[in-house]
Computed example of a mutant assay.
Amino acid sequence: METTNSLSSRALQYYVIARKWGSDLEFYKFETGFLRTLLDDYYFNIQHKDGRADVLELNRELMKLDADKNQLEKALDEQIRHLELMSEDVVPEDVSWLAGKQIRLEYMVTNIFSEYKELKKKIFSFLQKPHSQNGLATNMLFPN
């Protein structure tokens, strides 16, 4: 975007923050894909029903976070589009509206990433449990 010079410093700051959050969400997508792969591999190698049920529950929690992530992405895209339209003088700059929207976005970002951090801890903790409890040979999950 080349025309951001017409934005106020506050609106430009909101634009930069929204783009950074978008970048963070891109990383989130790669990381959750990796976690899903780990859980899938674990699921197909596990022999006990309890362990499989735990994997399914962790996957459900990831899906819920994905739904929240999709809402956040939509809201971020909307914010960025609005800021771009403001920079092109298509719509007037309304810093108070932007501030309210930015606060809601910040709440959403903080919430999703704190929930994700806790879920990631749960997943890693689950995958690090002694594998003999779950009927999984250690060499199947962590080959030499």
Rank of each mutant, 00 (worst) to 15 (best):
E2L: 12
N5I: 07
N5Q: 12
S6L: 11
R10E: 12
L12D: 12
V16C: 00
R19A: 01
K20V: 01
S23D: 09
E26T: 06
E31C: 01
T32F: 02
L38D: 07
Y42Q: 00
Y43T: 03
Y43N: 03
N45R: 05
N45H: 05
D50I: 11
G51H: 13
E57N: 13
E57V: 09
L58K: 07
R60K: 14
R60P: 02
D68P: 03
D68K: 11
L72E: 09
L72K: 06
K74Y: 12
Q79T: 15
R81E: 15
L83N: 09
L83A: 06
E84H: 02
E84G: 02
L85G: 04
L85T: 04
E93N: 04
D94P: 01
V95L: 03
I103V: 07
L105R: 01
E106N: 14
Y107W: 07
Y107T: 10
T110D: 14
T110I: 03
S114T: 15
S114F: 10
E118K: 15
L119S: 05
K120I: 05
K120Q: 14
K122E: 14
K122I: 09
I123R: 06
S125D: 11
F126R: 14
L127I: 04
Q128S: 15
Q128N: 15
K129R: 15
Q133A: 07
Q133R: 10
Q133L: 14
N134M: 14
G135K: 04
L136P: 06
A137S: 13
T138I: 11
T138W: 10
